[in-house]
Lab assay of single mutants.
Amino acid sequence: DRYEFNINGVHFTIDDAEEELIKLIEELLKRGARAEEIEEVIRRWER
Rank of each mutant, 00 (worst) to 15 (best):
D1G: 15
D1V: 13
D1S: 14
D1F: 05
R2L: 08
R2K: 13
R2D: 04
R2F: 08
R2A: 08
R2H: 10
R2Q: 08
R2C: 09
R2N: 09
R2M: 09
Y3G: 02
Y3C: 02
Y3H: 03
Y3L: 03
Y3F: 12
E4T: 03
E4R: 01
E4D: 08
E4W: 03
E4N: 03
E4Q: 03
E4K: 01
E4L: 00
E4C: 05
E4M: 01
F5L: 07
F5K: 01
F5P: 01
F5H: 02
F5W: 03
F5D: 01
F5R: 02
F5C: 04
F5Y: 04
N6P: 02
N6L: 12
N6K: 04
N6C: 06
N6R: 02
N6W: 15
N6S: 10
I7M: 04
I7L: 07
I7F: 03
I7D: 01
I7H: 06
I7P: 00
I7K: 01
I7R: 01
N8R: 01
N8I: 01
N8A: 07
N8S: 06
N8Q: 07
N8K: 03
N8H: 06
G9A: 01
G9H: 01
G9I: 02
G9E: 07
V10N: 05
V10S: 05
V10D: 06
H11M: 12
H11K: 11
H11R: 06
H11Y: 13
F12M: 06
F12W: 05
F12Q: 01
F12E: 01
F12N: 01
F12D: 00
F12T: 02
F12Y: 13
T13F: 15
T13G: 05
T13M: 12
T13K: 05
T13S: 13
I14R: 00
I14M: 04
I14V: 09
I14C: 02
I14Y: 02
D15I: 15
D15T: 08
D15W: 13
D15G: 03
D15V: 14
D15M: 13
D15A: 07
D15H: 08
D16F: 13
D16W: 15
D16L: 11
D16E: 14
D16G: 15
D16T: 14
D16R: 09
A17G: 05
A17K: 06
A17L: 04
A17C: 04
A17H: 04
E18W: 03
E18R: 02
E18G: 10
E18C: 06
E19T: 10
E19H: 10
E19V: 12
E19P: 15
E19I: 12
E19D: 10
E19S: 08
E19G: 09
E19C: 12
E19R: 05
E20Q: 07
E20T: 10
E20W: 10
L21K: 02
L21S: 00
L21F: 05
I22W: 04
I22L: 04
I22S: 01
I22H: 02
I22E: 00
I22G: 02
I22F: 03
K23S: 11
K23P: 02
K23L: 14
K23A: 13
K23I: 13
K23Q: 15
K23T: 10
L24N: 10
L24I: 13
L24K: 11
L24C: 10
L24T: 12
L24A: 12
L24F: 10
L24E: 15
I25H: 00
I25L: 10
I25S: 00
I25M: 03
I25T: 01
E26C: 06
E26A: 07
E26Y: 08
E26M: 12
E27A: 12
E27W: 08
E27F: 11
E27Y: 09
E27R: 10
E27Q: 11
E27M: 12
L28Y: 11
L28F: 08
L28V: 06
L28N: 07
L28D: 01
L29Y: 04
L29C: 03
L29A: 05
L29E: 02
L29H: 03
L29I: 15
K30T: 13
K30Q: 13
K30W: 11
K30D: 11
K30F: 14
K30P: 03
R31E: 09
R31M: 13
R31F: 10
R31C: 10
R31H: 12
R31S: 12
R31A: 10
R31D: 10
G32I: 02
G32L: 04
G32R: 05
G32Q: 09
G32H: 08
G32K: 09
G32N: 11
A33M: 05
A33E: 05
A33P: 08
A33K: 05
A33D: 04
R34C: 10
R34E: 15
R34Q: 15
R34A: 14
R34Y: 10
R34T: 15
R34G: 15
R34M: 15
A35P: 11
A35Y: 09
A35I: 15
A35M: 12
A35G: 05
A35N: 06
E36I: 08
E36A: 12
E36Y: 08
E36V: 10
E36G: 08
E37P: 00
E37A: 07
E37T: 08
E37G: 03
E37K: 05
E37Q: 10
I38C: 03
I38N: 00
I38G: 00
I38P: 00
I38Q: 00
I38E: 00
E39I: 15
E39H: 15
E39M: 14
E39T: 13
E39A: 11
E40C: 07
E40F: 06
E40M: 09
V41Q: 07
V41K: 05
V41L: 14
V41Y: 06
V41A: 12
I42D: 00
I42S: 01
I42L: 14
I42A: 02
I42C: 03
I42G: 00
R43L: 13
R43E: 08
R43Q: 12
R43D: 11
R43K: 12
R43W: 04
R43T: 12
R43V: 12
R43S: 11
R44A: 14
R44W: 11
R44P: 01
R44S: 15
R44Q: 12
W45P: 06
W45H: 15
W45R: 07
W45Q: 08
W45A: 09
W45D: 07
W45G: 07
E46Y: 08
E46A: 09
E46K: 09
E46V: 07
E46L: 06
E46S: 06
E46R: 09
E46F: 08
E46I: 06
E46G: 13
E46W: 03
R47I: 11
R47N: 12
R47Y: 06
R47K: 14
R47V: 14
R47D: 13
R47L: 12
R47M: 11
R47E: 13
R47Q: 15
